[in-house]
Computed example of a mutant assay.
Amino acid sequence: MNHKENTIFITGGATGIGRALAHRWHDLGNTVIIAGRRREALEEAVAGRPGMKFYVLDVTNREEIAAVTAQLIAEHPDFNVLVNCAGVSGAEDVTIARDLSHGEKIVETNFLGPVRMIDALVDHLKGRPAAAIVVVSSGTGFVPYPAAPTYSASKAALHSYTLSLRALLRDAVQVIEIVPPQVATDLMAGLKDSPYSVPLEKFADDVMAQLIAHESEDEIIVDEVKPFRFAERDGTVRDLLTAMAEGS
């Protein structure tokens, strides 16, 4: 992915990882458009950043996706990079019968949201030079966090979908997966204060450093997530699962 001269559209760009990356791409001189559900958070994210724009969008709403993506292409015909960063999480106790509505929301946001966004924009992207689709998955897509099983499963599904997409678009659009470790954001209660969370600014800096240094890379793997990303290769999946289950 080129790190300059792009027009980048980022879902989940008002807060957390999406916002941190949006600001860094904007600092590099890219045209950046962010999207999210809350107008107030979007306005705060673009404040003081000339040329940075936003759309209000809930990626679980098919009608909003259709309307916003049509507006995006009409207003920014040179748009060439889609970044899927919108996500929700939450702890669950899957050992008892429970209300499944939040788990269903997680799947619809984290997996079906990117699928629908890609479907709405892939034809446009295939016609653009230096086009890229970026998905933000998670280390828990490789070794699940037992206390958040639906979130972990949604990220595993997203990783699998990304592999297929990359193979099919190999001659038309670069497909990049960013694999975060546990990052100090508001995604889940306690992450900001956990000593195991990577500071958000450090994570964003490390991601951008890799994107700039290795423009042809299709996976961005920071040091802190490597034990999860390569756990199956290293034979450590069971040990990591046991440690997380005992600590949750």
Results as ranks from 00 to 15, higher is better:
Met1Cys: 11
His3Asn: 12
Ile8Asp: 02
Ile8Val: 15
Ile10Thr: 03
Gly13Arg: 10
Gly13Lys: 03
Thr15Gly: 00
Ile17His: 05
Arg19Gln: 13
Trp25Tyr: 15
His26Asn: 06
Gly29Ile: 14
Asn30Cys: 12
Ile33Leu: 13
Gly36Trp: 13
Gly36Ala: 13
Arg39Phe: 04
Ala41Lys: 15
Ala45Glu: 02
Gly48Ser: 08
Gly48Leu: 04
Gly51Thr: 11
Met52Gln: 08
Met52Ile: 08
Phe54Ala: 07
Leu57Ser: 09
Asn61Arg: 15
Glu63Val: 14
Glu64Met: 14
Ala66Phe: 11
Val68Trp: 15
Ile73Glu: 08
Ala74Gly: 02
Pro77Asn: 05
Asp78Gln: 13
Val81Leu: 13
Leu82Asp: 07
Val83Gly: 00
Val94Gly: 01
Val94Thr: 15
Thr95Met: 04
Leu100Val: 14
Ser101Asn: 06
His102Asp: 06
Val107Ser: 03
Thr109Leu: 03
Gly113Trp: 09
Arg116Glu: 08
Asp119Phe: 06
Leu121Gln: 01
Leu121Asp: 02
His124Leu: 00
Leu125Phe: 01
Gly127Met: 03
Pro129Gly: 09
Ala131Ile: 10
Ala131Trp: 02
Ala132Asn: 11
Ile133Tyr: 11
Val134Trp: 13
Gly139Thr: 12
Gly141Val: 12
Gly141Arg: 11
Phe142Gly: 03
Ala147His: 10
Pro149Lys: 11
Lys155Ile: 12
Ala156Asn: 09
His159Thr: 15
Ser160Leu: 07
Ser164Leu: 10
Ala167Tyr: 13
Ala172Tyr: 10
Ala172Cys: 03
Val173Phe: 04
Val175His: 07
Val175Gln: 07
Glu177Ala: 08
Pro180Met: 03
Pro180Phe: 00
Gln182Asp: 01
Gln182Asn: 06
Met188Glu: 12
Lys192Leu: 00
Pro199Asn: 06
Pro199Val: 12
Glu201Met: 05
Met208Tyr: 07
Leu211Thr: 10
Leu211Phe: 11
Asp218Phe: 14
Glu219Phe: 10
Val222Trp: 06
Glu224Asp: 13
Glu224Thr: 11
Val225Phe: 01
Val225Gln: 10
Lys226Arg: 15
Lys226Asn: 02
Lys226Pro: 03
Pro227Met: 08
Phe228Glu: 12
Arg229Met: 05
Glu232Asn: 11
Val237Gln: 04
Arg238Met: 08
Arg238Trp: 07
Leu241Trp: 12
Leu241Glu: 12
Glu246Cys: 00
Glu246Ser: 06
Ser248Leu: 01
